[in-house]
């Protein structure tokens, strides 16, 4: 086996790089949120408060770790780590610096593989709430399941649009096809995808699973110390995953003009910039929206978003020949 692959998995662009990116994105989100609310946000932990997420995680790791008496001990201790690792693994499958972490171009159909993995990770988040035997966690967990089952459908349907235009289910191929980003060519799919993604990431206006004013902290209510650190890390990784997925499907992934060698450096820069752009977009929506009621969330999905996603696929299929002509791809 290639010895290089350990470096790629553990350091760059694998675990360490993604970890730093995740922490940075956490800080970036909080800062955007604060500025939108006319506040300053974290400012005194390191330069511009950039070390704030790191301080939070270190503090949580050094705190006491309580397992409630009634909790299902095995699941309760395991689920935070498992959901975090599944999200991490699914990011590994994306072409991060031109190729993916396992230094190949993935395989035909890894888009579906990634989406399936993420559904698993969501299920583990549900289990984490369910296993803590707390009424608030239970309600939060059931709400997650309901929301994910509903919004996974429009998300996957609108992910089909780019795959159809690129004529492939491979992430690297979809990304490299986009000389003009699909976000500009098929804005209808892009907007629907963002709405469904917002619900998947439990951000406002869809944050009913952890609605602080109703159910304390949702499925995370009983977690403390190390387990809470992993739950938070899983949440942050999930947001970065959402941004990476959007950037790959609609913004051309890491690919762009290369000005000098090595290309992987440029690809990484483009990749990070696109991810930050998507996160800024998501946070903007979160900051200007209030929480929907739970029945509106469900009804809105089945009555509006899912039919709209189907319509957008039809529109994409009908306009595909023209779009492909425009892109200069074979029809």
């Amino acid at each position: 086996m290639n010895p290089n692959i350990f470096f790629r998995i553990l350091v760059f662009p694998g675990f360490l790089f993604l970890f730093v990116l995740i922490l940075f994105c956490d800080w970036f989100e909080r800062k955007i949120m604060a500025r939108m609310q006319n506040r300053m946000g974290p400012s005194y932990t390191g330069p511009f408060g950039i070390l704030q997420p790191l301080a939070d995680y270190i503090k949580l790791l050094t705190k006491e770790d309580i397992i409630p008496h009634h909790a299902r001990q095995f699941l309760f201790s395991l689920t935070p780590i498992i959901s975090f690792s599944i999200f991490m693994l699914s990011i590994f499958c994306f072409p991060l610096d031109g190729i993916n972490v396992f230094s190949n171009y993935g395989f035909e159909g890894d888009l579906l593989f990634v989406l399936a993995l993420v559904t698993f990770a969501h299920f583990f988040l549900f289990l984490s709430g369910w296993s803590s035997s707390n009424p608030y966690s239970g309600i939060g967990a059931v709400r997650i399941l309901m929301q994910f089952i509903g919004y996974d459908i429009p998300l996957i349907i609108s992910a089909i649009g780019p795959a159809f235009l690129a004529g492939s289910l491979s992430l690297a191929k979809i990304a490299s096809m986009q000389t003009i980003p699909f976000a500009l060519l098929t804005p209808w799919t892009f907007i629907l995808f963002l709405v469904a993604l917002q619900a998947e990431l439990e951000e406002d206006p869809f944050d009913v699973p952890h609605a602080e004013t109703e159910i304390v902290a949702g499925y995370g209510t009983e977690f403390s110390g190390r387990k809470l650190a992993f739950i938070r890390l899983a949440k942050d990784t999930q947001i970065v995953f959402g941004a990476v997925l959007t950037a790959t499907l609609f913004l051309g992934g890491p690919y762009g003009p290369v000005f000098s060698a090595p290309p992987s450096l440029w690809f990484t820069i483009y990749f990070v910039l696109k991810v930050l752009f998507v996160i800024a977009l998501l946070e903007f929506v979160e900051a200007i929206c209030a929480r929907l009621r739970i029945d509106h969330v469900v009804r809105g999905n089945w009555r509006m978003i899912t039919p709209a996603a189907l319509l957008s696929v039809i529109l994409t299929v009908l306009s595909a020949p023209y779009i492909r002509l425009f892109m200069g791809a074979p029809i």
Binding site: M40, P42, Y44, Y136, E212, G220, T221, F223, S224
Partner: peptide
């Protein structure tokens, strides 16, 4: 609130005692 904004110092208000220091 924006006037005092203790999130500057990393202080967050949490809903559950399990998360609080």
């Amino acid at each position: 609130t924006p006037r005092y904004d203790v999130e500057r110092f990393g202080i967050l208000l949490k809903g559950t005692p399990r998360h609080a220091d």
